[in-house]
């Protein structure tokens, strides 16, 4: 049952993911007083890409072919491990496992950028690797803090703790950690102020530069993977911030329906948040990234202190 629940949850996220990307894009267009692309556009783009031919550089090896699969698989694994609709008692989403799976996806993306002999891909790879290395302290410290608050180091228990009756008591304690997590997720998903997902200028790219050489089905896999990652990470974050409508076993069709609608609502909130951030701040210069990362880490560490001082120990 827990397994079926996890599958259903992952399938839900996977189906929603391109829509989430489309929705953020539309919201951003509205912030620019434009009408913007239809929300369903990413679905059509992915379908088109799957049907297209692939052109691949002669300077690549078998790694180049393996990359899209591993990256997509790591995103799918995240969707499978991270509880979003609710928790089923499987306790699969260990915090360090989730962090490592994210890193695995990044590393392979970096290999994809390096296996092209193009300076654009190489530059993106170098930058992406730097960012994902520097973001680790903030990620692990803030996840560790949430684990301490919840009393168990996996995301299901954290979600369980946050959706319990006394959630309002712990939200203020966890606020700083959640903010640090938000900063980390912005960086992990290549959003402002770390990266510009809509840039056409190779020199300002991080994530986009690595996928410049991909086409067709491989590109679709990579784009889909980043959409899934964005959706699942922000869905989890919003689950903690707005712990409403989270199901757990045993559930009825009604509670499940409520959970699905609530998750949609949370994703709308997350999209609004991301679009708002992206429309009101500017991208930071890459060589100022250590300031952003240090800020993330300091906030996470302050969150840890806050949790230790005001939270109940185990």
């Amino acid at each position: 049952m827990t397994l079926i629940f996890s599958f259903a949850q992952a399938a839900f996220i996977v189906l929603l993911a391109p829509g989430m990307v489309g929705f953020v894009r539309t919201l951003k267009a509205r912030f620019q007083n434009r009408r913007g692309a239809p929300i369903l556009l990413p679905y059509w783009s992915l379908l088109s890409l799957f049907r297209k031919e692939m052109t691949i550089t002669r300077n690549s090896s078998w790694i180049f072919h393996a990359v899209p699969f591993v990256v997509f698989a790591s995103a799918l694994t995240l969707a499978f491990l991270i509880p979003t609709l609710g928790y089923s008692g499987g306790h699969l989403g260990d915090i360090f496992l989730v962090g490592a799976i994210m890193a695995l996806g990044s590393v392979f993306l970096v290999f994809g950028g390096m296996d092209t002999a193009s300076a654009f891909g190489n530059m993106g790879s170098s930058r992406e690797m730097t960012l994902s290395a520097l973001v680790e302290p903030a990620l692990y410290v803030s996840l560790g803090t949430l684990a301490i608050i919840a009393g168990a180091p996996n995301l299901e228990s954290i979600l369980e703790r946050f959706s319990s009756a006394s959630a309002l008591d712990i939200l203020p304690i966890a606020a700083l950690s959640l903010f640090a997590l938000f900063l980390v997720f912005l960086s992990e998903n290549a959003r402002y102020p770390v990266d510009n997902p809509a840039t056409h200028l190779e020199l300002t790219m991080v994530h986009e530069a690595m996928v410049l050489e991909y086409s067709g089905a491989y590109l679709a896999l990579l784009e889909y993977a980043s959409a899934i990652k964005l959706t699942v990470l922000f869905a989890f974050l919003m689950d903690l911030v707005v712990p409403f409508g989270i199901v757990h076993l045993p559930f009825t069709p009604l509670t499940l329906l409520v959970a699905c609608v609530a998750l949609l609502g949370k994703l709308v909130l997350a999209a609004l948040l991301v679009a708002f951030v992206e429309s009101t701040i500017v991208k930071m210069r890459f060589y100022r990234m250590q300031e952003f990362m240090s800020l993330g880490f300091i906030v996470a560490f302050a969150g840890l202190l806050l949790a230790l001082i005001f939270g109940r120990p185990l």
């Binding site: 692309a37 052109t55 410049l212 086409s215």
Partner: peptide
Amino acid sequence: GNAYYDIERFGISFVASPRHAD
């Protein structure tokens, strides 16, 4: 690409690599 003409509403966008393009 600007707010008046907004080519994106027709599902058309500019991309950075010929490998991505239709």
